[in-house]
């Protein structure tokens, strides 16, 4: 079994959850196919070697660190060129990335450079002798496609949350490499990065999401949603398009067909009707809770636990109860 090259995604110099998920997916694949190595490539401003421990812990045999101050921001062209150059080095069956904002941008670039077939947002991967077969949800998750990719080297991106990050400890060998193009000579230059707020958990990484809809009636009532998220402690706040259209929350908080696709352990839908386009982004959540005053709301069709009631009353009571439950656990 030839090796798999994984893009170990970072923000600043910290690894992201999608990196571990992709490493775990690659580890499982090579192990299921008679062995082979998982190589992880990270592009960071500095401190790459320090990441090797964590990557080895999840199953990387080799960690390729590429350091350059230009990687402090998203140097998309240099990262893609470096990944492609490494992949071209030979011996790889697949390049794996996470289907995150970075991975969405990088994967097609790498595929075009390598002239390799590509499938994005995959939830299952099988490698056969002459083909790679993947599952990929299509039509806003309403249909699952099984795709076959023909070619000696393929590019795949893994749907966040679909491949569990599991430990498979080994001591990774560290190699360093130079960027394949100059990260300070990009055609696209990042002028500014506006952080969403310190310590904010990203929707794609949060185990719990509390999402609010138009049923909250006014932007200031999102305080109820934020308080409930804070009570869980590990929760992010999401919203429907009705809410982001009104400007109550930024577009980046939108969950659904045209927003983020999430599958947390727990999804709490507060004052959300459950339109088909919203369900497209969250119906694969492990457990769904819905609070809505209309017992006919479609959200109740997918909710494991529904409460029919006014969010203004139920949510504060739930927040209090969750705080107490947390205090006792």
């Amino acid at each position: 079994m030839p090796n798999i090259l994984v893009f170990a995604e970072t923000r600043g110099s910290a690894l992201r959850k999608v990196a571990f998920e992709a490493i775990s997916a690659a580890r499982a694949l090579v192990d299921a196919n008679g062995g082979g190595q998982v190589h992880a490539l990270c592009a960071v401003p500095s401190g790459g070697a320090a990441l090797a421990g964590q990557l080895g812990q999840h199953g990387a045999d080799v960690v390729v660190t590429v350091e350059h101050p230009g990687f402090a921001n998203f140097a998309r062209e240099a990262v893609a060129a470096t990944l492609a150059a490494r992949a071209q080095g030979g011996g790889y069956r697949a390049v794996l990335l996470g289907f995150s904002a970075q991975g969405r941008d990088l994967a097609p670039r790498v595929a075009a450079k390598l002239d390799a077939p590509i499938a994005t947002d995959v939830t299952e991967i099988r490698i056969a002798v002459d083909a790679v077969v993947v599952k990929h949800p299509v039509y806003a998750n309403k249909v699952i496609a099984t795709l076959q990719l023909d070619g000696p080297l393929v590019v795949l991106s893994t749907r966040p949350g679909s491949f569990a990050a599991v430990e498979a400890p080994r001591t990774a060998t560290v190699e360093s490499a130079a960027p394949a193009s100059d990260p300070s000579g990009e055609k696209v230059v990042v002028k500014e990065m506006q952080e969403g707020g310190k310590g904010k958990i990203d929707l794609g990484e949060a185990p719990v999401i509390v999402a609010g809809g138009r049923g909250l009636k006014a932007p200031e009532n999102f305080k109820l949603v934020e308080d409930l998220a804070a009570a869980f402690g590990n929760a992010a706040v999401g919203a429907t398009r009705a809410v982001t259209d009104e400007g109550w929350r930024p577009h980046s908080d939108q969950i659904g067909q045209t927003g983020r696709q999430v599958s947390p352990q727990l999804y709490v839908a507060v004052g959300i009707s459950g339109a088909i386009q919203h369900l497209a982004g969250m119906r694969s959540s492990k457990t769904i809770v819905a609070i809505n005053k209309d017992k006919e709301a479609p959200i109740f069709k997918v909710a494991d636990y529904g409460i029919v009631g006014d969010v203004m009353e139920v949510v504060p009571a739930l927040t209090q109860a969750v705080r107490e439950a947390k205090a006792h656990s």
Binding site: P137, K295, F300, V314
Partner: peptide
């Protein structure tokens, strides 16, 4: 084309939703 569809299927349904009660 090197990417071809082998199969399309509908995803498994979620178990039907359940309302556990009213209000606080």
């Amino acid at each position: 084309p090197r990417v071809t569809v082998k199969k399309m299927e509908l995803p498994p349904d979620r178990p039907p939703g359940r309302i556990i009660g009213d209000g606080v």
